[in-house]
């Protein structure tokens, strides 16, 4: 009896029909595609996107050239050179992040004692030439100036979890 049942099961391709019924049902299911440029998925305040260098309210740059971020960067994407400024403080003369190397792990941000290097929520940026994704200090500072409000807001929300 079992054998006859199995025989008909195989020859009527019952299992295949079952599989097709499943995909057939999904054919009519509501589609979950996010239409990217118009629609966006929600973004968390800890999102790790494009880097920026911050300044204090006075306009003084935060970075003190401690090189902790350079040391911890697993992809070795950060290059820092330091020198003494006229007022006797230690400042960076060069602070470059190669975004083609960066893996966006956020370690630089974590290691920074003065919250100078941060990762912003920006994810829509591109480069048309190879060098375009090599961000220099001026570019990073410009990013920070432009996005300071959002960066500060996100840090404030995150503060109570730290």
């Amino acid at each position: 009896m079992e054998m006859i049942k199995n025989f008909f099961k195989t020859f009527l391709l019952l299992e295949l029909v079952k599989g097709m019924a499943l995909t057939g049902r999904y054919f009519f299911a509501r589609k979950i595609t996010v239409q990217f440029p118009e629609e966006k998925t929600p973004q968390g305040f800890r999102f790790r996107g494009l880097h920026a260098q911050r300044r204090y309210a006075s306009g003084e740059e935060r970075c003190i050239g401690c090189k902790l971020c350079e040391a911890i960067c697993p992809a070795m994407a950060i290059n820092i050179e330091i020198a003494e400024r006229a007022d006797g403080t230690r400042r960076t003369t060069r602070y470059d992040i190669d975004l083609t190397k960066c893996i966006f792990c956020g370690f630089c941000e974590e290691s920074c004692p003065v919250d100078a290097i941060v990762e912003t929520r920006v994810l829509e940026y591109h480069g048309e030439k190879r060098g375009d994704l090599y961000y220099t200090k001026t570019m990073l500072l410009a990013n920070g100036d432009k996005l300071e409000e959002q960066i500060a807001g996100d840090r404030a929300v995150d503060a109570k979890y730290r």
């Binding site: 995909t23 057939g24 999904y26 054919f27 299911a29 509501r30 589609k31 979950i32 595609t33």
Partner: peptide, 10 residues
């Protein structure tokens, strides 16, 4: 289109 629809895409 059809394969997309069956994979809940558009």
């Amino acid at each position: 289109k059809v394969i997309g629809f069956m994979q809940i895409r558009i």
